[in-house]
Amino acid sequence: MPSPLSPAQISEIVEMALSDHVSFAQISAQHGVTPDEVKVLMRTELKPGSYRAWRKRVRDFGDRRAHYK
């Protein structure tokens, strides 16, 4: 990550990543973090089961839509 993120920025990134309507590209444009960095952040911020459910949802949507996350 380019610079340490504030708790408010972390919270906003997590909220955006959990949304089904915000892509990784939009998160990257707004906060300057890569999709891999978002995944690492989500892994540290969410409970293990919540992280797995989120990744499954992102993967499933990505299989159905070409331009999802």
Score class of each variant (00 low, 15 high):
Pro2His: 11
Pro4Val: 00
Pro4Asp: 05
Ser6Trp: 00
Ala8Leu: 12
Ala8Ile: 03
Ala8Asn: 06
Ala8Ser: 07
Gln9Ser: 06
Ile10Pro: 01
Ile10Thr: 05
Ser11Cys: 02
Glu12Lys: 06
Ile13Val: 13
Ile13Met: 07
Val14Trp: 06
Val14Asn: 10
Glu15Phe: 07
Glu15Arg: 07
Met16Thr: 08
Met16Trp: 12
Leu18Gln: 14
Leu18Gly: 14
Leu18Ser: 05
Ser19Asn: 05
Ser23Gln: 09
Phe24Cys: 07
Ala25Glu: 15
Ala25His: 06
Ala25Ile: 01
Ile27Ser: 04
Ser28Thr: 03
Ala29Ser: 01
Gln30Leu: 02
Gln30Ser: 06
His31Val: 00
His31Asn: 00
His31Asp: 00
Gly32Tyr: 01
Gly32Pro: 01
Thr34Arg: 15
Thr34Val: 06
Pro35Asn: 10
Pro35Arg: 10
Pro35Met: 11
Glu37Tyr: 11
Glu37Met: 14
Glu37Trp: 09
Val38Gly: 07
Leu41Asn: 02
Met42Lys: 10
Met42Tyr: 10
Thr44Ser: 11
Gly49His: 13
Ser50Tyr: 04
Tyr51Leu: 11
Ala53Phe: 04
Trp54Lys: 09
Arg55Glu: 10
Lys56Pro: 08
Lys56Trp: 13
Lys56Asp: 15
Arg59Gln: 13
Arg59Lys: 11
Gly62Ala: 12
Arg64Asn: 09
Arg65Ala: 13
Arg65Lys: 12
Arg65Thr: 05
Ala66Asp: 10
His67Ser: 10
His67Leu: 02
